[in-house]
Structures are given as structure tokens and as C-alpha cells.
């Protein structure tokens, strides 16, 4: 199995990067020009990627753990201060939409149902009507929410304790599916396939699972898992958390980023790695493909896997990707 290692001039570092670890990078739904970056420095920044400049910045009271675009002019974000904020990118104005009872870990937008979704360490998911904006329901999860992803009108929630819950955003009266992660270690990230048929789940133990939502046995047979983001050093295999997953919206391939500092792109249908980029200075904390799949934002940011120690500076790299790197062969 051959893997190309790619380096080159198709990549640059964003200026004015956050002053502490990066928690999330998210592209605007309409254009690859704008990128939201949330950080442990308590800020959310809006970058003009094409111009490599920071266009706006707003703050929370405490580190921001996630952010999302509602539409191209509204950012939503939440973090340790437990407040869900929406920021109007035109007027540069904040609104506190509501709160959770503990840190907000995830913020996502579901265009199909037009709701914002937040997941929190208070063991709940809340939905928010983005127009009002206001709370539109609270839904208890069995454990702290670590990650969530929207697949069409379904919501896939990954919690502590390796649980996975599938909710129907149009009928939140009950949990549509309760699952246990097929990976043995803590769930790190879940991202839904753009085709909405399944999701990819990564764990802290250098492993990624490809799962399908359709519970029929036939379909479930297709699911699988594989190891990645492991490095052999001195005969010992270093196994890294897989922190980030981002799907290529066109090809349904996906990138994973690990604490090993590598970004891999996978073809889930042929079970092949399409490519591996060069090693980034430190852990890959977040990844985002632009909507058209031409650009990948890569947050290289130490996540204290090995404690509160010195580390390379936090940075966001913008990389132009090609079909050769992202398209199934």
C-alpha cells in the first residue's frame, strides 16, 4: 500500500493565530474564504483565508471549545463559561443565546431542520432556534457529550463511556438508536458522512471506525475499524488520539488528524489511505474541509496529551488539496 507524502507550497500558515490552543476550525457554509477558529484563549476569530488576515474576533469569558456557522454572517460558539453565544459578523455584536449547566463542548448547525445543536458536559444536548434565537429543547444524554455530528435530520452524539446515541432531530421524543462505540477506548470525534448514511468515529487510541446508521444486519456488516496515527519509536508503538475528522463533501472521503501531528486522508469505500501530509509541528486538534472540498484547514495545536508542557506554537494551516489527494481511485 503506497502512500504519498505531500509537502509543498500549496499550504500556508494563517497570520494572527490564537494565543492558546485551538479547539475548532470551521469553514463558512457558503465560501472557502472565511474560517472560524475557536480557542482556549477565550476567543473566536474569523479569518479571511484568501487574504490571510483576521477579520474579527470576539470573546467568551473562558476558553471556547467549539464554534459553528449558522449562516455566513452568524457564528455560534460555546465553551467553559457555559454560555452559548451567537455573534453577528456584520455588526460585530454578541448575543448570549442561553446556557448549559456545564461547559459546552460542541456546537453544530443542522441545516435540514434549521436548528443549532449544542452538546455539553452537563450530559445534555440542547437545540436552539437560530432565528429567535432561543432554546428549543433539552435532551438528556447518558453521559457527558464529547462530540456530535449532524447527518441530515439525524444527530449522532458521542459521549463519555463510549456511548453513541442517534437522535431524530424532527422527533426528539426518544432516542432512535443507542449504541456502544465499537472502539474500546474513549470516543474522540464523530463526523457524519455527507451522504448521511453513516459516520466515522475516532478514539483516543489511534483507531477509527466507519459505521452505518441503517441498523439492518446487511448494512451493519459493512462497518469496520482500522488503526492509524501510530508511530513506532524505539520499538515501542506510540499510539495517538485521533482528534479530528473532516469529510470531503464531494467525494465522501475524510481526513483524520491525530496527536501524532499527521493528517491522513482516507477512502472509506475502498478502505485505503489516499495520502498522508507531512508531519505538522504538534497535535492536529481540528480539521475542516471547505464546503467545495478544495481547501483543508488544519489546526496544529498541542492538546496537553502529555501534560502542561512547552510545545510548538498553535497554528492554523490552510492547504489547497487536489482530487489526487481526496478522490477515491
Amino acid at each position: 500500500r503506497k502512500t504519498r507524502t505531500m509537502t509543498g507550497s500549496n499550504e500556508y500558515k494563517l497570520n494572527n493565530s490564537p494565543e492558546d490552543s485551538i479547539s475548532a476550525v470551521k469553514f463558512s457554509p457558503s465560501t472557502g474564504q472565511f474560517l472560524l477558529v475557536s480557542s482556549w484563549d477565550s476567543t473566536v476569530r474569523l479569518y479571511d483565508v484568501a487574504g490571510n488576515s483576521m477579520r474579527m474576533k470576539y470573546s467568551h469569558l473562558a476558553p471556547v471549545l467549539d464554534c459553528a456557522f449558522y449562516d455566513p454572517t452568524h457564528a455560534w460558539s460555546g465553551g467553559l463559561d457555559t454560555q452559548l453565544k451567537t455573534h453577528d459578523l456584520n455588526t460585530d455584536q454578541d448575543t448570549i443565546v442561553g446556557t448549559h449547566d456545564a461547559a459546552i463542548r460542541c456546537v453544530e448547525y443542522c441545516p435540514e431542520v434549521n436548528v443549532m445543536v449544542t452538546g455539553s458536559w452537563d450530559r445534555s444536548v440542547k437545540l436552539w432556534d437560530p432565528r429567535t434565537p432561543c432554546n428549543a429543547g433539552t435532551f438528556t444524554q447518558p453521559e457527558k457529550v464529547y462530540t456530535l455530528s449532524v447527518a441530515g435530520d439525524r444527530l449522532i452524539v458521542g459521549t463519555a463511556g463510549r456511548r453513541v446515541l442517534v437522535w431524530d432531530l424532527r422527533n426528539m421524543g426518544y432516542v432512535q438508536q443507542r449504541r456502544e462505540s465499537s472502539l474500546k477506548y474513549q470516543t474522540r470525534a464523530i463526523r457524519a458522512f455527507p451522504n448521511k448514511q453513516g459516520y466515522v468515529l475516532s478514539s483516543i487510541e489511534g483507531r477509527v471506525a466507519v459505521e452505518y446508521l441503517d441498523p439492518s444486519q446487511e448494512v451493519q456488516k459493512k462497518k469496520y475499524a482500522f488503526k492509524c496515527h501510530r508511530l513506532k519509536e524505539n520499538g515501542i508503538e506510540q499510539v495517538y488520539p485521533v482528534n479530528a475528522i473532516s469529510f470531503h463533501s464531494v467525494h465522501n472521503t475524510f481526513a483524520t488528524g491525530g496527536s501524532d501531528g499527521f493528517v491522513n486522508i482516507w477512502d472509506p469505500f475502498n478502505k485505503k489511505r489516499l495520502c498522508q501530509f507531512h508531519r505538522y509541528p504538534t497535535s492536529i486538534a481540528s480539521l475542516a474541509f471547505s464546503n467545495d472540498g478544495s481547501t483543508l484547514a488544519i489546526a496544529s495545536s498541542y492538546m496537553q496529551e502529555q501534560g502542561d508542557i512547552n510545545h510548538p506554537e498553535d497554528a492554523v494551516f490552510i492547504r489547497q488539496v487536489t482530487d489526487a489527494e481526496t478522490k477515491p481511485k
Binding site: A62, A160, I236, M303, E305
Partner: peptide, 29 residues
Amino acid sequence: ATSKLIHPDEDISLEERRAQLPRYQRNVP
């Protein structure tokens, strides 16, 4: 013997662990 998991011993997320650092706690309810 043959592998090392690059992760703290506690089975909580990296973010939860980090959030406990005092410097992040200043404005946290």
C-alpha cells in the same frame, strides 16, 4: 511492553482535563 498510548491516564477527555487547570477556571461558573 509494546505500545504507549499518548494520553493521560485518566479516562476523561483531554479538554475536561485541561479545563481543570486554574488558568482556565477564572471565569468559569
